[in-house]
Amino acid sequence: MYSEKVMDHFANPHNVGEIENADGVGEVGNAKCGDIMKIYLKIKDDIIVDVKFKTFGCGAAIATSSMATELIKGKSVNEAVKLTNKAVIEALDGLPAPKIHCSVLAEEAVKAALADYYKKIGRDASDLMVCEGCCGSCDHHHE
């Protein structure tokens, strides 16, 4: 069902944890849908020097969080903004169809954290407005 990469990132996730006084924090999803992702960013001179995550969700949700944080670590915020769920899926050697929404959530969690950072430094974050309810493939109405 899962690729070896997914299993590896689930069993040994990278960047689990919190960052005290983070420069950007983003949380997406809700418990009703079964997935919540929270990403913390430490940013210096527009470079993501540290990133941590906490995720409530299935194996794929944990693996995509791990991979998404890994992909933006050390990158500039301008590069991180361009992270897509597709890039996360590719880096994990694919995801089963019902789990694609986990990668969408990971992308949105990164964007939400970056939007929080933009707001803090007074930069326009309107391009980063993300869904704060469920992910795209979920039927539930946003709350």
Partner: peptide, 8 residues
């Protein structure tokens, strides 16, 4: 739970 924002 150590990974869970809900537990946090």
């Amino acid at each position: 739970r150590m990974m869970s924002p809900l537990y946090e």
